[in-house]
Design a protein around this nucleic acid. Structure first.
Lengths: 239, 239
DNA sequence: TCAATAGTGTCTATGAGACATTATGCA
DNA sequence: TGCATAATGTCTCATAGACACTATTGA
């Protein structure tokens, strides 16, 4: 590489316009609990490519919009979920993941309660459905199966050491409601008695309201964001 | 929104070319241990914008290259680190992070031993330096301070539940070498006796070679990737 | 009054951490 | 032979989980 070539390469390295454009999409894994089961929001594609297949709600990033706003709007446009939590999962950038051109996708994870509660398999609008994550296998467009898997795994991890489980629930909930969130997201049963004490022993996770529903005390979310001690999933014994 | 406008919006949603381009950069937080201290690789910028400030090694994504290759090459071009581990941290996309145009950065974390061992503050090449992370504060260009912080935090987390600490070390190492990795990345002292037994009690983390250096047994990396039980950092008691 | 769920009691096993003690190899 | 570091012993405390038991409320 001679001097001028090196200089050109150097300048190009620092000039974004020197390269062909790469498309940037934002796709969201929106999770909610329906009837005790974890569900993910999907859209049936009406256009090329992958016409007819399921895809995550998403759109292309516009230069003047933030990733977060883009991620939330894509979900709001399709369903009545109000994400109590939004976080970035990561960026998926396989070279041929989109047949049209190079497109990378910044994936987001959103979860929250839906109101009113739909049923599992519920068709929210034209070509929009909630799919029960652990009950059936779903064929997605692009690499969206990978993204869903990463999103679910992230949700599972986050329930261990953050207080985010409460964002799946309405403001008031019982201990069983909260346990149901863990059971749905982790897809395994949990001992009610031990769960009860573990949650109460975790500072700031929930606080009692004082009222009851049937014979169950009602709680609201506490002010903790990180849980200590964590609600452990004992991964070593499982995966 | 009338029918034709809606249709146009719908089509645009699925056509990447319908939007102004967004630049995609890849920046890498490359970490290594120098003299028992955690160091990060930085480049002094020679061009606008932020001329003269420190930045992470990085470049723009070309349509035909993968993120991972781009991330590793950016580091290899600057220093003699051979990343034993590479993972994506996340995508940083603040709207005005780059004054030239909208540029999002997919950030990667790399770590591994350097050979030969440089000294801390070592100038690897023209305008390339290793900076001791916890000894001094460094002013970076763009939002690269945030990216470094996220990278270091990710490294700290990963040492808890993965066997990646060994990738900071050469093939043969003593228990003290391994403890030094944890102390450098976590930036706090660890009881040698308890660490010793905790590591040996963690299936597949290290295996003894049988030989010694001074009076210390030598080990090599085991075949485990996830650690169980994890080497816990007791975050609750700290942050 | 019965059934289902909520909530409490109790025991065991595991692992983290403090810190004392012994072993090893080099100056 | 003495010193630094390696390696082992021993104790305490916190927490997870199994499972038996009692309490409460609606059908």
């Amino acid at each position: 590489m001679d001097q001028s070539t090196e200089e050109a390469a150097f300048l190009a390295e620092y000039d974004p316009r020197a390269y062909d454009p790469v498309g940037v999409a934002v796709d969201t894994v929106a999770l909610t609990l329906i009837d005790g089961r974890l569900n993910v929001l999907a859209v049936k594609r009406r256009e090329h490519p992958f016409r007819g297949l399921l895809a995550l709600p998403g759109t292309f990033l516009r230069p003047e919009r933030s990733l977060e706003v883009t991620a939330v709007d894509a979900v709001r446009a399709k369903a009545n979920i109000s994400p109590g939590h939004l976080e970035q999962i990561g960026t998926f950038a396989g070279i041929n993941r989109d047949p049209r051109m190079r497109v990378i996708s910044v994936a987001y994870l959103a979860f929250g309660p839906t109101d009113p509660q739909p049923e599992s398999g519920w068709v929210v609008g034209r070509d929009v459905v909630w799919l029960p994550v652990f009950h059936g296998t779903w064929k997605f467009a692009f690499d969206h199966e990978d993204i869903v898997e990463a999103g679910v795994k992230r949700a599972q991890d986050k329930l261990e050491y953050t207080a985010l489980a409460t964002t799946f629930l309405p403001e008031e909930f019982t201990m069983s409601d909260l346990r149901e969130v863990y059971e749905a997201v982790w897809n395994r049963p949990i001992d009610p008695a031990n769960f009860y004490r573990k949650v109460l022993g975790t500072k700031g996770f929930v606080e009692p309201i004082g009222t009851k529903r049937r014979n169950a005390a009602l709680f609201r979310a506490g002010d903790a964001t990180k849980l200590f001690p964590a609600i452990r999933r004992d991964l070593g014994a499982w995966s």
